[in-house]
Design a protein around this nucleic acid. Structure first.
Lengths: 110, 110
DNA sequence: ATGTGACTGGGAGTCCGTT
DNA sequence: AAACGGACTCCCAGTCACA
């Protein structure tokens, strides 16, 4: 998955054609502009959550389903934590603090 | 799933806390602003594809995974095709045309 | 460590076309 | 039916000081 915009666009086009819809029909159902949807399918648009939801609804699929498949399943390679000057102990400490913050409870520090 | 922004935000917060990260570290890894990420987790930001990808990468999960789970799996209810003045035969016809267009081939009409 | 209001530039999204 | 372009509006990405 080099560019999520292209991957998303291809997926939308796939599902649209499977459903036997034209861009115009899909755009109308999603309440979006025809030219905008065209750009989405060609991977030129940086679609945001609200429109992702609109498009999924118009395609009659769940958001989960629209992002399922090989295209989106590749876990991106990630730089080593060391490179970010962030140690494992840092993570553990921050985990404690975060949990304390959100749950209003504290760890036994002894 | 009433609002995809809230659902996405909750999911991000879940995965961040599980990984023992603070908002600040996650934001740093994603190359985003801390206050922006705060808004994302509270469902107040309409995150777009490129930032979804950044956040997923920083969380060390795939985009598919971030959208998996009950929260995103509900297929949205959809208005009847009739309400849209779009018949089943229309869909079939459009499907043929669309396939013809993209595959450069034609259906046997007989 | 996180929440929040306010701000600005740029891009999301629309509407008009032509190819 | 779809790609593409220009011009437009308006919302949001991205940031700040402060709570």
């Amino acid at each position: 998955m080099t560019d999520l915009r292209s991957a998303f666009g291809k997926r939308v086009r796939e599902l649209r054609v499977i459903n036997g819809m034209t861009q115009e029909t899909l755009a109308y159902r999603a309440g979006l502009d025809r030219t905008y949807l065209s750009g989405v399918e060609r991977g030129e648009r940086n679609v945001s959550l609200l429109n992702i939801e609109k498009i999924a609804t118009a395609l009659q699929v769940s958001v989960e389903y629209i992002f399922s498949g090989e295209r989106f399943s590749v876990t991106p390679s990630y730089q080593s934590v060391d490179l970010l000057h962030h140690t494992i102990n840092d993570s553990i400490d921050e985990g404690r603090n975060a949990l304390t913050f959100y749950e209003g409870s504290s760890f036994d520090q002894n």
